[in-house]
Amino acid sequence: MAAAKTPPVTAEPAQTDVLAQIQKLSELQAAGVLTEAEFAQKKVELLARL
């Protein structure tokens, strides 16, 4: 019995997720929910995942 082949894992979905999270954080900053410093700190954390 042949093993089922799995498609190669790419970083693209993770990258899209990170970018979507940064976009949401940007919206929260614009709405006054996050400070500029809070936004910058979280953005650095998210970009480090790429």
Rank of each mutant, 00 (worst) to 15 (best):
M1C: 10
M1G: 14
A2P: 15
A2N: 11
A3M: 10
A3Y: 11
A3E: 12
K5Y: 15
K5E: 15
T6A: 13
P7M: 15
P7I: 15
P8D: 05
P8G: 01
P8Q: 01
V9W: 08
T10K: 02
T10R: 01
A14N: 07
A14P: 00
A14G: 13
Q15T: 15
Q15R: 02
T16C: 04
T16D: 11
D17N: 08
D17E: 12
V18F: 04
V18L: 03
V18W: 02
V18K: 00
L19E: 14
L19S: 06
L19T: 15
A20R: 01
Q21M: 11
Q21D: 12
Q21K: 06
Q21R: 09
I22H: 00
I22T: 03
I22F: 03
I22G: 02
K24Y: 14
K24Q: 14
L25P: 04
L25F: 12
L25S: 05
S26W: 05
S26N: 08
E27W: 01
L28N: 05
L28K: 01
L28G: 09
A31S: 08
G32E: 07
V33F: 08
L34F: 07
L34W: 01
E36V: 15
E36W: 07
E36P: 03
E36F: 12
A37I: 09
F39E: 04
A40T: 08
Q41N: 08
Q41Y: 09
K42R: 06
K42I: 07
K43C: 07
K43E: 14
V44G: 02
E45K: 03
E45F: 11
L46F: 08
L46A: 06
L46R: 00
L47F: 10
L47M: 12
A48Y: 00
R49F: 13
R49Q: 15
L50M: 13
